[in-house]
Design a protein around this nucleic acid. Structure first.
Lengths: 186, 186
DNA sequence: CTCAAGATGTAAACAGTGCATACATACAAG
DNA sequence: CTTGTATGTATGCACTGTTTACATCTTGAG
């Protein structure tokens, strides 16, 4: 809480500072461009300091992904409560908006890299997110598991294709227009 | 064409040997686990040798992805000709089969990493593949661009979710059963 | 208040990476 | 046979994630 001192030996809130700085770098440079040394330098701390808060680079990525899943869950829950009549279309749009507004983070959340070294924290956060997804979209799930999987696949696939810039927009067409049309299509 | 010699100075077909060895390592270790040194060691050649055939690691990955797109195109064209009556469902199943049979390669083909450094070869190969996809699935495209995008999104999304093991199979259920059901769902 | 213990940061070094440069070898055309 | 070119090697550089030993701050018990 001090101090007039210029550079205190202890940062005070290094873990959070690392996470927020990492998010910025992640979205700007992509996952491969997020190095521990650059990150440490960005926060003004030695290269070894992050290891006091994360066991490895993978640990840091996991922490980022976990916050991503939490934010994702919160947004999905909020939009489903805001549109109790027909939550499905609204949830689809929110799913896509989240992916487009947090491109690198969204990719990280579904990264096979992280899945490979079984990070339990990530597994738990992901399952929690999908549980709320299931709960909150009750209509679809009662309409049948296959229908739910098909809907999820469509939304998720559109997200991935848009993130990878595999879909070309028509002149004057906005992404949200396209999203709305694809979601309404059945 | 010689020789009885044990280890000839020139490999003879290093480029292909590198590509096939790289594919094996890729599917076993993932993209991050594919290092040039390991690759060179696997083929029995010096660490610098691959640079005679690929300008960089990214160049090698690009070459892998290009072969992937070619194989993908060939399979899609073949299956569409084998099922001229209703090519759509068959193509969807082939799309999914390809993804599941070439997991790491499929991911590499759509990797944003490679897209970032605009490799022209990859761009061309990808566009060629999607062109044949469009041509070959004529029915869908005439049915409307949005419908085509929705169908593509569904198939691609299911592929990605399956690759990331985000979808749990029911006891006794096979992947192909699930795929067929989701594809037939509309 | 004191002061030991633990938490948090630093400095330095290690192994491994992609990559570049200079050199060696083999083949192919004249 | 000579010579140019393609292909592979040896070596070194800059950089990375990570570990170890040490420095500094904070905290809580006596």
């Amino acid at each position: 809480m001090s101090t007039s001192s210029n550079a205190p030996y202890h940062h005070g809130d290094l873990r959070n500072a690392l996470l927020t700085a990492a998010l910025v770098i992640l979205e700007r440079e992509g996952e491969a461009g997020l190095g521990l040394r650059d990150l440490a330098r960005a926060v003004g701390v030695s290269p070894a300091a992050p290891y006091r808060h994360f066991d490895s680079r993978a640990g840091l990525l996991e922490a980022l992904a976990v916050t991503g899943f939490q934010k994702f869950s919160a947004e999905m829950r909020a939009v489903s409560e805001a549109h109790p009549a027909d939550p499905l279309a609204a949830m689809g749009r929110t799913y896509l908006r989240f992916a487009l507004d947090n491109r690198a983070l969204f990719r990280l959340m579904f990264s096979p890299q992280l899945k490979r070294d079984n990070r339990p924290g990530l597994r738990i956060a992901a399952e929690a997110a999908f549980d709320t997804l299931r709960k909150v979209s009750g209509g679809y799930t009662t309409a049948g598991r296959i229908a739910a999987l098909a809907a999820w696949s469509k939304v998720h696939g559109l997200a991935v294709l848009l993130l990878d810039e595999q879909i070309a927009l028509r002149p004057g067409e906005t992404v949200d227009q396209l999203i709305a049309q694809v979601i309404d299509q059945r």
